[in-house]
Amino acid sequence: MRRGLVHAGAWTLATGAAVTLSWWGVHTVMSGTAYDPPLAVPLTTQPLSSSTHRALPPAPSPDPSPSPTPSPSAPSSSPAPPSAAKPSPPPTPPQPRQGTANEDVKAYSVSGGRVVLGLGATSAELVSATPSAGWRMQVWKQPYWIRVTFTRAGREVSVFCTWHDHPPLVEIVDP
Rank of each mutant, 00 (worst) to 15 (best):
P70F: 09
S67F: 09
A74F: 11
P68G: 02
P47I: 04
P60H: 02
S67L: 15
L43D: 15
T44G: 08
A84G: 02
S65L: 09
H53E: 12
S76D: 15
T45F: 05
P70H: 11
P72K: 08
S76G: 07
S67T: 15
S65F: 07
P38M: 03
S73T: 15
P81N: 01
S71Q: 05
A40K: 11
R54V: 09
Q46E: 12
P82V: 01
V41G: 00
A80N: 04
T45S: 11
S67N: 08
P57Q: 00
S67Q: 14
P75H: 02
P75K: 02
S76E: 15
P82K: 00
T52V: 15
P60I: 01
A55L: 12
A59W: 08
A80Y: 10
P72C: 04
H53W: 14
P79V: 06
T52I: 14
P75G: 00
P82A: 10
S83R: 15
S51V: 11
R54P: 00
L39G: 12
P72L: 10
R54G: 11
P66N: 06
A59C: 07
S71K: 06
V41A: 08
A40F: 03
P62F: 00
S73M: 05
S51R: 13
P60G: 02
H53F: 15
S76M: 11
P47G: 03
S73E: 14
T44A: 10
L43M: 12
Q46W: 13
P70G: 13
K86C: 00
S73H: 10
P57D: 03
Q46I: 09
S83I: 10
P64Q: 01
R54K: 14
D63N: 14
P42D: 07
S61T: 13
P62M: 07
S50Y: 02
L39Y: 00
P64N: 03
S71L: 12
S71Y: 07
Q46P: 03
S88G: 05
P60D: 06
A74L: 14
S49H: 12
S88I: 09
K86P: 00
T69N: 03
S61I: 06
P68C: 01
P81R: 00
P87Y: 00
P75T: 06
S49N: 11
P60M: 06
P70Y: 10
P64T: 03
P57W: 06
P70S: 13
A55G: 05
P79T: 10
P57R: 07
S71G: 07
P87Q: 00
P72G: 03
P70E: 08
P79C: 03
T52F: 15
K86H: 04
S83V: 13
L39H: 09
S76K: 11
P57T: 05
A85T: 11
P42R: 11
L39W: 03
S61F: 12
S50I: 01
L39C: 08
S73V: 10
P60W: 01
